[in-house]
């Protein structure tokens, strides 16, 4: 049987110049549940589908607020995301302490990119198994960055990562020209619609499994979960959507 000898570690190039361990780490991102990010000229929105291990367990956090002006959404290994988000919090606090100003988003995105790259070039380490969408507003306006385990960081207008995210990206590409001038409410609607497009047949967005992070227009980064997302779901998909889980035990 064919055995790939070049995929045991991240310090071996294949004859084609590929690093399989890094590519496999990229696959871990595709196993995670889907997250979406969009920016307009004024706002940045993150939306995520949360998963629970079993009926009685809680849902895995997907959107993590970092500083008052930005947050991240993750797809892949949540514990790796926690390491990176702790680092981002530390760096952001340091920026506020030493210079009295909020962290620049491209700067922090590149810093975690550089950190991740080290893991792809040294033996005894593994690449991070998580992809992140870093989104917020800094002195240059709203931004959205996509981070991959390879250390690749790209600034995007809108994007989606995670399981079946191609469907969400198709939605985003189709509606791309509407985002720049969209209002906050429209942007949230688009993000939820993109998220919905990537769901498998038997799933739907509910107040339990949907997270939304919003920042911009002078407001700080706010994470919406539980009942707080119910009006958003209602305005995106009509009143019927998510009703089932909005039931309160009587």
């Amino acid at each position: 049987m064919f055995r790939n000898n070049y995929d045991n570690d991240s310090v071996t190039f294949s004859p084609q110049g590929r690093i399989f361990q890094v590519e496999y780490a990229g696959e871990a991102v595709k196993q995670g549940s889907v997250v979406v990010g969009i920016v307009s000229k004024t706002h940045a929105v993150l939306a995520a589908l949360k998963r629970n291990a079993e009926e009685l367990s809680s849902y895995q956090k997907k959107v993590i607020p970092i500083d008052t002006h930005y947050g991240v959404a993750l797809a892949g290994l949540a514990s790796d995301a926690r390491v990176l988000s702790n680092f981002m919090r530390q760096e952001s606090l340091r920026e506020r302490l030493t210079y009295g100003r909020p962290m620049n988003l491209s700067e922090i995105a590149n810093r975690i990119g550089e950190r991740a790259q080290i893991n792809t070039q040294q033996y005894g380490r593994r690449p991070y198994g998580v992809g992140l969408l870093i989104s917020g507003v800094d002195r240059n306006g709203p931004h959205l960055f996509e981070f991959q385990p390879s250390g690749m960081v790209n600034e995007m207008l809108a994007t989606s990562i995670g399981a079946r995210s191609q469907m969400a990206r198709t939605y985003l590409e189709k509606n791309l020209d509407q985002f720049a001038d969209a209002t906050k409410e429209e942007l949230i609607k688009h993000a939820l619609s993109a998220l919905k497009d990537s769901l498998s047949q038997d799933k739907e967005l509910t107040v339990d499994n949907t997270s939304v992070g919003v920042v911009g227009g002078g407001d700080l980064f706010k994470l919406y979960e539980g009942q707080e997302v119910s009006p958003m779901l209602a305005s995106a998909f009509g009143e019927g959507e998510g009703e089932e889980s909005m039931e309160v035990d009587t």
Binding site: T12, F13, P15, R18
Partner: peptide, 26 residues
């Protein structure tokens, strides 16, 4: 001889470096 960096092949080549150059070519 091409499975590890820092290893010469009998004809004096370091394959991992050559493979790295492949990454550049695209």
């Amino acid at each position: 001889y091409d499975l590890s960096n820092s290893v010469f092949s009998p004809d004096g080549r370091n394959f991992q470096v050559e493979y790295a150059m492949k990454a550049v070519e695209n």
